[in-house]
Simulated scan of single mutants.
Amino acid sequence: MHADQRKKLINELTDLIKGGNAHVTLEDALEGVPANLRAVIPDKLPYSIWQLLEHIRIAQKDIIDFSISRDYQTLIWPDEYWPQPTDQVSDEQWEKSVKEIRDDQQRFFQLLQNDEKDLFSPLPWGSGQNIVREAMLIADHNSYHTAEIIVARRLLGIWK
């Protein structure tokens, strides 16, 4: 792959993970969620906005940890990927989760930009996965659950 093609691919994958284009970004989906509704589970949905946010954080970190290191430790599905319901979420907890999502994305973007990494070669510790596939998995997973946050907000009457 030529350097200019690689750069274009990295830019496309980065934009895909950040969201937008055809989808609402995670930041937009979270903007203005009242603290008293973060932990409310809307009728007929299994999760609160907080649980969805935390699931995005946990799963994304898991994917990135796997992509970066052979020392990756597999989480137990579903217990370690989904937080338990809670009655309230502090501003500190909320902001920490959002910050960790952003920080982990930056770790992944650094991996993408590492010219020594072949984006298409299978990760030696995986079962055929490569960095491009993991980038698309992050984007796909995050956008899926971002849409669920919007549905939850609509059911709670707090979406535009």
Rank of each mutant, 00 (worst) to 15 (best):
M1V: 05
H2K: 14
K8T: 14
K8E: 15
K8A: 15
E12Q: 14
L13N: 00
T14M: 04
D15Y: 07
I17T: 06
V24A: 09
L26A: 00
A29Y: 01
N36A: 11
L37P: 00
P42D: 11
D43E: 15
P46G: 08
Y47A: 08
Y47I: 02
I49E: 04
W50P: 06
L52W: 12
L53M: 13
E54N: 15
R57I: 05
I58F: 04
Q60K: 09
I64K: 00
F66H: 01
S67I: 04
S69C: 05
D71H: 10
Y72F: 15
Q73M: 13
Q84I: 11
P85Y: 10
T86N: 01
V89Y: 02
E92G: 05
E92T: 11
Q93I: 04
Q93L: 11
Q93Y: 01
F109V: 11
L111R: 07
K117H: 12
S121H: 03
S127E: 14
S127K: 15
N130R: 02
N130A: 04
I131A: 05
A135W: 03
A135I: 07
I138C: 07
H141W: 09
N142Y: 02
Y144K: 08
T146L: 04
T146F: 01
T146I: 02
E148M: 13
R153M: 07
L155K: 13
I158V: 10
W159Y: 08
